[in-house]
Write a protein that binds this DNA or RNA. Structure first.
Length: 339
DNA sequence: TGTATTTGACCAAC
DNA sequence: GTTGGTCAAATACA
């Protein structure tokens, strides 16, 4: 291919993306301002009135969603291109063998998940992959490891200085849809009934099969960690809202731990709490937005799958709480760091 | 018989 | 060299 035209296209795309990202940020800031303005009464109002989502939030959410989807489309259009879109900047997926379309030529295959076909290469090729240094990660504490997605366990490992082994799961849809989402589950030493679940990457699968969806998603989960400043900060500022949620969900505590570095998190064993790590802000937007979109979508999907089109009131309340607290928190975060 | 889990081995990062 | 993440054959299960 003509490298000049290719570079030109990349340049144009980069500009387009930059503009979109900027618009995305502005829209976010607008929502933050508006959200913050009435956030104090928002939760109570939502619960008392049960009147559905706030129209302002809803509108801006649509704007943000439009930006995000556009950026995502542009980004996914040429995943190899060097476009510094905040979405997946640091979190860009390192290629795993047969795990990613961006896999290097050395990893033959590129088919997602049909690893048996790669056996022809020989046993020496076993373990051909590139470890994910960092990705979109966030951690929750939960008393159940089940969530709304179908996972397949692919490994278990004894981890140094831990009592319980760590289990590794990947999305069941990886072979069929190339979904890259994985999660690691580790039982808490302090509280063996609680699991620390680290999610790595987002689901790219359509996840139409919701057979494994738990009946009451998120009831006992707390987002306690992320690979980005905003979400980590959110977790901190979310504390107050989380406490409200805790009471509803019967959870005793919320912990904010080191961001993005699982290893560090483990080594410090929670001592390095409230650590925030500088990261791309766009990525933060992305993560928050995907978090919200995923949450919203899944509620609907789950309910439709179960033939239940009515969303339980406590889920609705949680939606609004969740959205509100996310943005409130980010608002506070933005207030402490120069834009 | 097909699918999911277990577990030892392999490999990259540190 | 150590450690953690992943692979894939073996095994278990429905």
């Amino acid at each position: 291919m003509d490298s000049n035209s290719n570079n030109g296209t990349k340049s144009i795309k980069k500009k387009v993306v930059d503009q979109l990202v900027q618009g995305y940020e502005f829209a976010t800031q607008l929502q933050l301002l508006l959200s913050h303005h009435h956030s104090k009464n928002h939760i109570d109002q939502t619960r008392i009135l049960s009147g559905g989502p706030d129209p302002v939030d809803e509108l801006i959410a649509k704007i943000l969603g439009s930006f995000h989807k556009t950026i995502s489309v542009l980004d996914s259009f040429d995943p190899v291109a060097d476009v510094s879109v905040p979405i997946a900047v640091e979190g860009s997926w390192n290629a795993s063998c047969g795990d990613d379309s961006t896999a290097p030529p050395s990893c033959n295959g590129g088919d997602s998940g049909d690893s048996k076909k790669r056996l022809g290469v020989g046993k020496g090729k076993r373990g051909c992959y590139t470890r994910k240094k960092r990705s979109h990660t966030w951690t929750v504490k939960a008393r159940r490891i089940e969530d709304r997605y179908a996972w397949r366990k692919y490994g278990q490992k004894e981890i140094l200085n831990t009592t319980f082994p760590r289990s590794y799961f990947r999305c069941t849809h990886k072979p069929t849809q190339g979904c890259k989402a994985t999660k690691q589950v580790q039982k808490q030493e302090q509280d063996p009934e609680t699991f620390q679940i680290t999610y790595i990457g987002y689901h790219t699968c359509t996840a139409t099969d919701q057979t494994h969806a738990k009946t009451e998603p998120f009831d006992d989960e707390i987002i306690m960690d992320s690979d980005n400043t905003m979400a980590a900060t959110m977790a901190q500022h979310d504390h107050a809202n989380a406490k409200v949620q805790d009471q509803e969900n019967n959870i005793s505590s919320v912990t904010v731990v080191g961001a993005g570095n699982v290893k560090e998190e483990e080594n410090n064993n929670g001592e390095n709490k409230e650590h925030c790590e500088a990261s791309s802000r766009g990525e933060e937007f992305s993560l928050v937005w995907q978090d919200m979109m995923m949450f919203d979508d899944q509620h609907h999907q789950n309910n439709y799958y179960r033939g239940d089109t009515s969303i339980p009131s406590h889920h609705l309340a949680f939606d609004n709480d969740h959205f509100s607290s996310l943005f409130d928190s980010y608002c506070a975060y933005e207030g402490t760091s120069a834009i």
